[in-house]
């Protein structure tokens, strides 16, 4: 078996929270708690979950944009975290980010051309001519017109700005592109344009995506394998077909059933599971399964409240962290 492009092992991210008296020890939010996954070349791995489940934090930690508490991230077999400052900076050319908000993620004082070429200026030594050629190619690839190069971000629409963001992310020919909710700030009709573009670019440049979204319809369309996160933990990990056709974790089942659908057959087939309450306080994680407090089928006798369940194998490409599955 060939080495995966990216492998993440036991990643943990904690944020200190100072509350109360200044001499009291800081508490920690366990934003990402013992997360492991691999991404193969050319595939799209989806991270789904509700807000606060640790999707974005995982992605930021993978790109070392925030420091992790523990864990190893290997890109092409080399340890990404242990690189010294300069090699890390150069290695960043291989991991690029597409951000959620196309309004705040572009510098308003730079022209589109300048924004898009920025990664090349920082990471590669190119002549002016080469730089201009790369920018022209990438503008063409993402569907922007050459005469738009001299415009500033405010002169573009939301969808066009996201195209600029995409161009900036792929101009350095990265191996892994992290897409953090790339379409959730856009209008529905524009979403389709961007999603189709992302899939075209993936085929054309053989890109690998780590795709973060809370919209299960979008994830279903974009991703080959999907990790479902809840409170910083992966609760289910599966390929696309199995996850959507036979979800095993009660949280995944509830999440899928909550998505309103235009397909009448689906509405008749899927029983809506309404979860009560809100997720528990991330500052004081309870022992046992994090989902236990809201789980419709929680059972004390199988250990739901004692220890977080390990990932169990359902099939070759499907794992679930739930005690109930073994029964």
């Amino acid at each position: 078996m060939n080495t995966p492009l990216l492998s993440v092992e036991n990643l943990k991210v904690r944020f200190p929270v100072k509350r109360g008296l200044p001499w009291k020890a800081a508490q920690y939010v366990h934003a990402v708690d013992d997360v492991s996954f691999d991404i193969q070349r050319g595939e799209t791995l989806g991270l789904v979950g509700e807000s606060g489940s640790g999707k974005t934090t995982t992605a930021l930690a993978v790109a070392k944009l925030i420091n992790s508490w523990e864990g190893v991230v290997k890109l092409n077999g080399t340890d990404f975290f242990s690189l010294d400052k300069e090699s890390l900076r150069l290695e960043r050319a291989n991991i690029q980010f597409i951000f959620q908000d196309p309004y705040s993620s572009l510098n308003p004082r730079l022209t589109a051309e300048r924004i898009v070429s920025e990664p090349l200026r920082q990471l590669k030594n190119l002549s002016k001519k080469e730089l201009a050629e790369s920018v022209d190619d990438i503008f063409d690839a993402v569907g922007l017109r050459p005469e738009q190069k001299k415009l500033f971000p405010h002169q573009f629409s939301g969808g066009q700005r996201q195209r600029i963001g995409i161009a900036r992310a792929i101009i350095s020919k990265p191996q892994l592109v992290i897409c953090d909710e790339p379409v959730s700030a856009l209008d529905v009709a524009v979403q389709a344009q961007i999603l189709n573009l992302l899939r075209d670019l993936q085929k054309r440049f053989n890109l690998t995506y780590l795709f973060i979204s809370h919209d299960l319809g979008v994830v279903q369309h974009m991703c080959d394998r999907i990790a479902v996160m809840y409170m910083g933990k992966i609760v289910e990990f599966s390929n696309r077909m199995e996850l959507f056709n036979s979800p095993q974790h009660p949280y995944t089942q509830a999440l899928l059933s909550a998505v309103p659908s235009v397909d009448r057959k689906r509405r008749e087939r899927v029983q809506r599971i309404v979860l009560s309450g809100d997720p528990p306080d991330p500052l004081n994680p309870v022992p046992g399964c994090h989902f236990a407090a809201r789980c419709p089928s929680v059972d004390e006798s199988i250990g739901c409240l004692k220890k977080f369940p390990p990932l169990d194998t359902v099939s070759e490409s499907h794992q679930v962290a739930c005690y109930r599955f073994k029964r």
């Binding site: 299960l216 056709n245 899927v270």
Partner: peptide, 28 residues
């Protein structure tokens, strides 16, 4: 028609193939 078809909806049964989404070009 565009508004309905441009969104990847969850279907009753998922299929292996994924057709490109119908695009409504341009903006309002």
């Amino acid at each position: 028609r565009g508004l309905i078809a441009c969104v990847p909806h969850l279907q009753a049964f998922m299929h292996e193939e994924r057709v490109p989404l119908l695009e409504v070009p341009g903006v309002v």
